[in-house]
Amino acid sequence: MSTEPVSASTPTRPVRHFVMPKTLSGKLYYWRFVIARRFVQLSVLLLFFGTVHWGWKIAGKPLLSGNLSASKLLDVIPLADPFAVLQIVCSQHWPILEAFIGAGVVLLIYILLGGRVFCAWVCPINMVTDLANVAREKLGVRSLIVVSHKVRYWGLLLVLLLSFLLGVAAFEWVSPIGIMHRELIFGIGVGFVAVLGVFLFDLLIMARGWCGHICPLGAFWSIIGWATGQVKVAFDNKACTRCGDCVKACPEPVVMNFKNLESDGMVRAGECTNCGKCIAVCPENCLEFDLRVRLGKSA
């Protein structure tokens, strides 16, 4: 996470930092990924909500019935949360074929889009933790607890172990993501306490605590993204002045390791959520979304 030049290939270029554009169009351009992400997040929610409450249909088929755990698109294509299905299998229950097909479809979608793209573009908790993050920086709250970002992988193991021991999908039974998502779609209840808990945890106790350190679902998608994610943030080493603005903007700063960026030519780490904050903030425009296959060839 060094902000000093580490490469000999970029010796004397002046370091410029990101400056917020003055014009409205410039500002909108800066916010383009945030706007797109909120649009996608809210659209996904609206599709589920509209299908349940307003009976949205296309050609007589319900548009998207269910929720993020499992759903059916146009009454034909099953979708299911692969992590939920994995937990159910670990709990020694065997769902029907439709659940496995749905999990496969969703897995394929996120392999193509890059793993944790779920976290930044779909997951409703992302809006809560982003808000907590902004509030935390505005208020200048210092973290009470600092832990390794790798805690989530131990959490993932604990989920699978507990699922096996308790005979139920351990994370699904306490997941604030599932609770928030269900209550947004099927009616607001006491479950919003769990969402408030995540907000306060991120705000007061641990900076970027839930999404950046704890969430086992994020850990699951991290592994998928690291191993097979296809959409990646490409890194142009020649243009980079190591100003470090991307590191400051990144919600998962551990992925912005210049040594790795230089050798991989992209943000390879699975923890990257493809949120695009680094791209928007880079003053030299040396970060851009690209496909892993192309990056592999050029590197």
Partner: peptide
């Protein structure tokens, strides 16, 4: 899977999904 598709399918609004 806690997906609520049965809740949506019920024509009489009988079913609901349990909260925490």
């Amino acid at each position: 899977l806690k997906c609520g598709q049965c809740v949506r399918a019920c024509p009489y609004g009988t079913l609901s999904l349990s909260s925490f």
